[in-house]
Write a protein that binds this DNA or RNA. Sequence first.
RNA 1: GCCCGGGUGGCGGAAUUGGUAGACGCGCCAGACUCAAAAUCUGGUUCUCGCAAGAGAGUGGGGGUUCGAUUCCCCCCCCGGGCACCA
Length: 960
Amino acid sequence: MEYAFREIEEKWQKRWKEERIYQVSNDSDKPKCYVLDMFPYPSGAGLHVGHPLGYIASDIYARYKRLQGFNVLHPMGFDAFGLPAEQYAIETGQHPAVTTEKNIEAFKKQMDNIGFCFDWSREVRTSDPRYYRWTQWIFLELFHSWYNREASKAEPISTLVNIFETQGNQAHPCPGEASLRFSSGEWLAFGENKRQKILMNYRLCYCGIGEVNWCEALGTVLANDEVVNGVSERGGYPVVKKKLRQWYLRITEYADRLLEGLGTVDFSEAMKEMQSNWIGRSSGADIEFKIKKPGSADALPLTVYTTRPDTVFGVDFMVLAPEHALVSEIKSPGQAAAVEDYVAYVQSRSERERIAEKKISGCFTGAYAIHPFSGKQIPVWISEYVLAGYGTGAIMAVPCGDERDHKFARHFNIPITNIIGDAYNGHEANPSKDVRLQNSDFLNGLPMAEAIEVVIRKLETEGTGLRKVNYKMRDAAFSRQRYWGEPFPIRWEEGIAYPLNEDRLPLELPYVETYKPGPEGEGPLANIPEWTAQHLETNTMPGYAGSSWYFLRYMDPGNDQVFASRKATDYWNQVDMYIGGTEHAVGHLLYSRMWTKVLSDLGYIGFDEPYKKLVNQGMIQGSSRFVYAFNFKLQPEIPVTFDHPVFVSFDVCRKYENDDPGLFKFILSRIGELSGLDPEKDFSTIGVIPLHVDIGLVSGNELDKEAFRRSNPKYAGAVFVSETDQYICGSEVEKMSKSKYNVVNPDDIVSRYGADTFRMYEMFLGPLEQSKPWDTKGIEGVHRFLKKLWRLFFPDGSLVVNDDAPTEGELRILHKTIKKVKEDTEKLSFNTAVSQFMICVNELTALKCHKKKVLEPLLILLTPYAPHVTEELWHLLKGAGSVLNASYPGYAEKYLQEATFTYPVAINGKTRTEMTFSADALQTDMEAEVLADNVVQKWIDGKQVKKMIVVKGRMINVVV
RNA sequence: GCCCGGGUGGCGGAAUUGGUAGACGCGCCAGACUCAAAAUCUGGUUCUCGCAAGAGAGUGGGGGUUCGAUUCCCCCCCCGGGCACCA
């Protein structure tokens, strides 16, 4: 009997489906374990071998936990709303609902092929009205809530109205408009319109006019994390700043809690750092300078933000952002023209230009600021290096301590004050905080770190400044001018947004024929008369809305009373293991963490961090292959015609690297008709162009020349130039993509080698978190392993398994495997676990071990990795029951035999004697000091044992 | 520029966290079976010298701590990722 993986996999997948073996109950006495994958966008391209990497890892972990007796929630769904789905629909001319449905079916089929243990009965789709009903509901919760900074949590907006009615907003300054102050009396006197406008400035999801990232090509605004280097993350289209009415998520109120929460979760350091960089918390002080208005006695206040108030005596100039409101007021008549020119210049520069070429530029305003302590007059400049959107849009410049200020001072010849003595060398700023201040009045002699506190206290008592914390993170744009997203359950009336009643949810997305933008930058929904007649909001929610809470819906997917029952969320609680790529570091992961905190604040769930542990799988890259097209054009007078495409082998190209004349001579010498021509004079064009070639036409690095000729009529007459009769392709590791012809489809691999081989091979490729190129060749080794495993049961074609007692050698290898695989699986170090399986099967084969008592535990151990073949073999062994369904709490221990092993024991490497240990001791305490004390100590005459080392599982070395 | 990772055979990668470096797999070489091929099996495979036994070198480079360093410390080089006028 051969290892017939196709039959086996078909048979078991059918059985698993029929028996709903993976369906999970919310009622169980078992401990729970929630293993989650980041759900995919169902794009039209389908899955390539890179996508399942994380799914396989989570699948192994989920199966492992299930075998250990956990009730495991391991669901899958689809992030079906959002820009890409709509773009794809536009490209193919079909309705997004149709293409999305089709793509989901294709994805599911591909996933089923691999044999995942997803509980499909819990599938969610963000574009399903039964799902987005609750996305809309959560939006309304956000809309109806404000962030109480005193309590550090979200509260219903009604509590805020109560506060306003009794005490105004003195204790709760408006996050949207800091200068807004009113008393309870004033509040009571405000009209409805004014009250609603004020409340809007407190809501966690609010509508406001703001500068947004507008992408003309996509016809929508984008959140900051969707814009990379001034262009859209999707498509790479230009993005410009534009003032628009937008919905926002007031995520800035959660900045501190999002930062603190990182301390309570198990994310990688890199991930935590990316998030805290994005949040960008800094602390310092706002300092108020007075500016003398030119030609008048009035003084205008200018507030700057600095993290280094200690350097306040080193200020040599002030810089405002060119957009700063004060600029037009303070410019002196003499400088007015120059300032206007400069502002115009800055406005003419796009975001991209500004980022690409950072040059020192600026303009003196003619105004002077008064130093709050020394009273010194300080020139006020404007420059584009100061950003309007951060801090107060103005800085105090301290050239001796800040590199940018230093360069600016040098460039414009502004004299530099030195407040750090020798620490400043005169031509380079020194940003150190580890210096004692000089030249700094009441701060002289103080270390900078201490001076910060002294200055802030003095500023606060004198009323010229305040302690201040700033964040780089901005509120997130929450509306899109697109069709394929959740409609906002909002109705507009006289400029006021009114939420729809809950009983109108879901507010379903209407059907449209075209996705043309509506008038004045509105979305396609603005083209629908029935929609606009009701004054419904025409924007839709962004892609991250649905994905911010999907992990909660899996817990209770069919509930139509609430997004998930409290009982279900209390039971499943946090995600124990979340696996996905790093690309969502500052998008999805931050938003879903915030939503979780809000739902927790409002009392709907009992935890405020969604993911207890996060693991980022690496990317599987493609290994591209290249052919080298000889590109030439003969001079018109040459009487030769040659219309075959010519391809030069990589080995030839490499041989003549940096020697083009040599290369061309060689090529010409190999082409009969062209031989004898002179590359120097007979050609008008000559060169070699690398072209991606479909990896399906290449085996290793050798091109299948015939298949290549057949692949494209253009290449039918292709001529190959190489040293041998093989054509060698060049290769490069790149991202896997259609356009690079390097995509490997998991379906092909599965049909050729089977799902178990595919699963094990993806894990064997290398550490989960590392990026690595796909190499189909190496898969043979894993496939061979599974065939060997099969032969362990069927050595001569028929099942040979006996009930004999295992020998010491067999137990030794089994226990080593149990120990290693358990440890590795726990650590998600699947590559080394697979290696151990190979060693185990190799050694058992060598020992000709066909013993049930050894093979059974091996199968259980192997089940999470290769579920199909183990299920088959288990049935052949046992006759009935499913190993997948089995629960073996501490299953490895169950098979721990009462065996003893004898080891040679050496002192400092020299063998002295043999000693016998129980299997149990070896399992857990191989190098334990207990063993050393109890057993070895006596034998080595009381010398102190420094360490015991088991050498290759064959010898124990005692170091004294 | 700043902050994280990382650098080990021809290749992907191991190394019990300071203890025989190179597990396991790919590739390659030799052999067995076969009319032959495939499949399978056995042995070999870090490099240099040597027929061999063996000797020497060896974890990006240089230095240090240690009986002992891929592992710890300092300096430098290279690769991957993230951030980037955030005052």
